[in-house]
Design a protein around this nucleic acid. Structure first.
Lengths: 244, 244
DNA sequence: CGATGCATTGAAACTTTTCAACATGGGTGG
DNA sequence: CCACCCATGTTGAAAAGTTTCAATGCATCG
């Protein structure tokens, strides 16, 4: 498999230009960023960072999906974040990575050397402001996920995950809901995301298929004939559910 | 019961002065804040905000404990945040509250009217910078909690909660670990925090007591004879566990 | 074509929940 | 002042849901 070599010399053609941490940068600020940015690509499954590693960069996900996960020493693993295009990785001011970061699918990052990025944040308030907005959104997402982990049963967990991925997929493509999409996770990754075993994930996927909530085309492509029906399996409030 | 009337005219005597969102404000900025701040107190158990309410203020917790929780319409509830002194409540730019907020213990808030606070954030970058730091810390805490919810068993969950509360208690009092502290939560609140039923919480508390990991003085006061022993019940790595 | 990695399915074991009864302990009103 | 009451907490036993262990299926890759 050949890793595609990216060559976005120009932020103007960047697919995440309007949603990433640089969303509100002016042309001169983009060229400032350009001075200390570089792209890196990873193949599906490759590790990007191990917990405890020194991290000299922060980055935006340009294409693909990455996971943040935390391991317990006896081997149990919990995914604590799923980074989709435009999401931000790393923390300004932090030397050591607190989580394992893995490329879930083929992935391209737009990396910024950490020190100059921190300097830019100090000098250019709206970069920090944008990062604050994004961090608050991530905190909301993390809290929504806490409800899934703490209070939903296995079927509701699976349905919730599918609904969330479908919605995010749709929002990237600027359509209301995606009724067909590629599931970027293995069964094991889903299990780590949902706090289940991979067998339970497999069983519940089969059950949702058997009940006609979803169809599978191959192992990874999901078809949702009726999004409301999927939504009603999540256990969430039908309408008011989403945060304002 | 009489609600104590607070009268911190002066930020100089404020117990959270050095940790809250205003930590890095200069005297002139504090007097700016003073123009649109006010204190409110609540008794243990009182609701502060219901999900969906209009929220015209943001606030710092001065004393006491508040909870953020999300309900599912069938009655299941998951606590998604526990706000201790110096923690920030509300989101600049957001009109409607996404969670129920409840005073867990007697509570005093230092409230700022939202609009002027937003203006101040725009004009005074370091307020936003401080809020970004605090939000990133909260995100870390939320992710740590996701591991607890997703991968730990009931005993580990209880031990984790006790260890975390003991540590936060200690850090407020500037001592390394608190080996005796007041547990501010009812069994039901603990259950909502941990994604368990209150019966399971009760059983595991009894088990930890039976095994000598903790002692109970009354219903709420917890004594931890050996903090390492408690820590070893959490399932976490002994030392490297804490994020850098 | 056999090996390897991922996924599915079954049955037994285990953990947590559910339902129900009982305990405790402060407060209130007789 | 005491009895009773209500909220909170504890404990037991059966039921339910999830995990564990084990076998099998299916596709891809060398």
């Amino acid at each position: 498999m050949k890793t595609p070599v990216l060559d976005f010399k120009d932020c103007g053609t960047c697919p995440i230009r309007h949603r990433a941490v640089c969303a509100r940068c002016e042309p001169d600020e983009l060229s400032q960023l350009d001075a200390f940015k570089y792209y890196r690509s990873y193949e599906a499954g490759q590790p990007i960072i191990w917990s405890g590693d020194r991290m000299d960069f922060v980055a935006s996900v340009v294409t693909g999906v990455a996971s943040l996960s935390q391991g317990m020493e006896d081997g149990r693993t919990q995914m604590v974040g799923l980074l989709l295009p435009s999401d931000f990785m790393g923390r300004p001011g932090r030397e050591l990575a607190p989580y394992d970061v893995t490329a879930v699918s083929n992935l391209t990052l737009c990396c910024f050397r950490r020190k100059p990025f921190e300097k830019m944040m100090a000098d250019t308030p709206h970069v920090g402001q944008r990062l604050l907005e994004m961090t608050l959104d991530e905190l909301d997402a993390a809290r929504e996920w806490m409800v899934v982990l703490g209070r939903k049963n296995a079927r509701e967990k699976i349905a919730s995950m599918l609904a969330i991925i479908a919605r995010r997929e749709a929002s990237l493509n600027l359509v209301p809901t995606a009724n067909e999409f590629e599931l970027p996770l293995t069964r094991e990754a889903m299990a780590d995301y949902l706090g289940l075993t991979l067998e339970t994930v497999s069983r519940q996927m089969s059950a949702l298929k058997r009940d006609g909530i979803i169809q599978l085309a191959g192992k990874r492509r999901i078809i949702v004939p009726d999004f409301d029906r999927l939504q009603s399996e999540t256990g969430d409030d039908m309408d008011g559910g989403m945060v304002a």
